[in-house]
Simulated assay, not measured.
Amino acid sequence: MKKDFTFNIKSVSLDENYHPSTNTRITTNFANLARGEYRKANLRNALNMINNRFNALAHWDNTKGERYAVELEIVSVEIGIEDGGESFPSIEILKTNIVDHKTNKRIEGIVGNNFSSYVRDYDFSVLLQEHNKGKSQFSIPDDFGVLHGKLFQSFVNSDTYKQNFKKPPVICLSVSDNKTYNRTENQHPVLGVEYEPNESSLTEQYFKKMGLQVRYFMPQNSAAPLALFFFGDLLNDYSNLELISTISTMETFQKIYRPEIYNANATAGKSYKPNLKNLDHSLTQIVYDREERGKLANEQGKFAQEHFIKPYQTVLEQFSTRYLS
């Protein structure tokens, strides 16, 4: 058996002409938007929202609010399993690139947005559900998220990652609707006001096993804080434009996916508890099938179980035991 898994990266532009391939993870936000009768309008409107938000945040030397445009790449990661060439579709993420129309320069952004993973789908949609089936009290399986965390860290530490990306990933997610977030006095010029949760969430614990820290910030004119998962020093390792590319992209998707929180008509106060049943929110002009996305996550979790977890159980156990985070 090889010392470690190998990784192969493929990328495709996410623009209004994007069509999901048969190999893409169909639960991802961008794949959901790119299907159906309104696919082209969905993508065009989402990209316009991202650009408008980027220019609003990067307002210096940008009087007309048209200086920048964000280009997105869908990065698909396959994991090589055996020397015989077997592989499995592992992760899909977005990478941002920034076009500066004033200087005619293209600036590399950050990879990590819209993070999605087959093994994560398996953990939450299959393993966690089976573990709690028929039980009166919710609990978490032993070593929950350990394999996924080590696979992710193996990828980020791989030569493949380092050859394709200059900096570690930043993964931006929604806040949890069962936690309370309290505003602090700390404020960043781009990320905005920092919030702190009253307790750790299952998502936090899961991403910690991926080697990631988390901080919560609410940018100017946002409705709610965003969760930013990262390695190293979030505030000093990335430029303002890099951070804005991540914020503008993920905030747009969250307005579409969770309008009750991120397109709410009232902004988060000093003490904030997200509410997915909040009726006081606005809808975007973008068609998004949230119910379908939930069903597909379960299907893809079962796909991972059948084609990756079960057939390679011994290999995965040996890897998980050997790999040091």
Rank of each mutant, 00 (worst) to 15 (best):
K2I: 07
D4K: 05
D4W: 10
K10H: 03
K10C: 11
D15C: 02
Y18V: 01
T22W: 09
N29V: 09
G36F: 05
K40Q: 13
N45Q: 11
N51C: 00
A56T: 14
D61G: 01
N62Y: 05
T63I: 14
K64N: 15
G65E: 03
G65N: 01
R67S: 01
I74E: 11
S76G: 04
S76I: 04
I79Q: 06
E82D: 15
E82S: 14
G85D: 03
S87M: 12
I93Y: 09
I93K: 10
I93T: 13
L94R: 06
V99A: 12
K102I: 11
N114G: 13
N114S: 13
F115K: 07
Y118L: 15
V119E: 08
D121L: 03
D123L: 05
D123F: 11
L127I: 03
L128Q: 08
Q129G: 06
Q129D: 09
K133G: 01
K135C: 06
K135L: 09
Q137D: 11
I140L: 14
D142S: 15
G145P: 06
V146F: 09
L147S: 00
H148C: 10
K150F: 11
L151Y: 02
F152K: 02
D159F: 13
Y161C: 00
N164I: 04
K167Y: 06
P168G: 07
C172R: 02
S174N: 10
S176E: 09
D177L: 10
N182D: 12
R183V: 09
L191W: 08
G192D: 06
E194W: 01
E194G: 00
E196S: 08
K209P: 03
K209G: 02
M210V: 11
G211P: 00
S222N: 02
A224V: 00
A224F: 00
L226P: 04
L226R: 03
L228T: 02
F229G: 01
G232M: 04
D233G: 03
D237M: 07
S239Q: 14
L243H: 00
S245L: 05
T246E: 12
S248P: 02
E251D: 12
K255T: 01
R258C: 12
E260Y: 05
E260F: 04
I261R: 01
I261L: 07
K277N: 14
N278V: 04
L279T: 15
D280Y: 13
H281C: 06
V287F: 15
E291P: 02
E292W: 14
R293A: 11
G294L: 05
G294E: 12
G294P: 05
G294A: 09
L296A: 12
E306R: 14
K310N: 11
Y312W: 11
T314P: 05
V315C: 10
E317D: 13
S320I: 00
T321R: 14
Y323T: 12
